[in-house]
Nucleic acid binder design. Sequence first.
DNA 1: CTTGGAATTGGAATTATTCCAAAGAGCGAA
DNA 2: TTCGCTCTTTGGAATAATTCCAATTCCAAG
Lengths: 141, 141
Amino acid sequence: MTPPLPPESLTQRLADSGLRATPQREVVYSVLLRKRDHPTAEEVFARVKAELPTISLATVYNCLETLVQCELVRAVNFERSPTRYCPNLRPHAHFHDEQTGRTYDIDLPPAVLAEVNHVLPAGFDASSVEITFRGQARPAS
Amino acid sequence: MTPPLPPESLTQRLADSGLRATPQREVVYSVLLRKRDHPTAEEVFARVKAELPTISLATVYNCLETLVQCELVRAVNFERSPTRYCPNLRPHAHFHDEQTGRTYDIDLPPAVLAEVNHVLPAGFDASSVEITFRGQARPAS
DNA sequence: CTTGGAATTGGAATTATTCCAAAGAGCGAA
DNA sequence: TTCGCTCTTTGGAATAATTCCAATTCCAAG
């Protein structure tokens, strides 16, 4: 369970990879942190434009890709729909509501993660695992 | 979450959905059964053409979609790469080898499946769950 | 036979994303 | 400060997978 990261880590994380903190990257990241509803690149683009009206969609794709590389953001794919982006770094699964299309984060206890990893036969060395539910949600919160 | 199914005839399954067994559907299905390497639609197209040289790619997409609807085949998505098709109906996860791009089926014991489903809080009703590993494989077989 | 719905076909359209070449920005060295 | 270098951004073109569509073709029932 990775703890939430302090805000200054964007610059730090980028620097660690030899990259610069630019206004575009900062705003893209802050937009993801501000509303954690798993937006698509187009949705991020729309939100970022409020602050940086001249940003281009290509740059949004670039920034998102950069954030994923730096492991500050996870890219979430559900079937063939557009990639969604998620700044939640704790181990979690995703639940995709078939009616609303909304995506929910589901925390994954380490014990379950461990058990899931045990299904791998010898010779399979996993660097990551993705668990995605699909169904109907009526979340309490 | 599909329970294991007895081997059932394509014709029967199609009929259950009010659909017809056509040569195209039969060959597409038999191609999937013959070589279970998770082919893409294009790969299926190439294989089917050996038997039905005039089939169109659109028809291959149609047939695959039909087979998925009838629950004879599973569509497997890995990130944004082309959808792959898999006639294995037992509950299983997928392991995606990062070097070779190959996909392996990993059997999922019911107990693990049950534990994974337990991570869902009240209000989340899953109709299916997808587990995908990514890493390096050196399979014994 | 005829006829209506199902299925197939080829090509155009769509969509998400990536590619590309040119312009811009920031930083360290001289 | 002024270069010069590299990293970034940008808009538009290109790509890739899939879907859409309109025109046949195929069957199976009446």
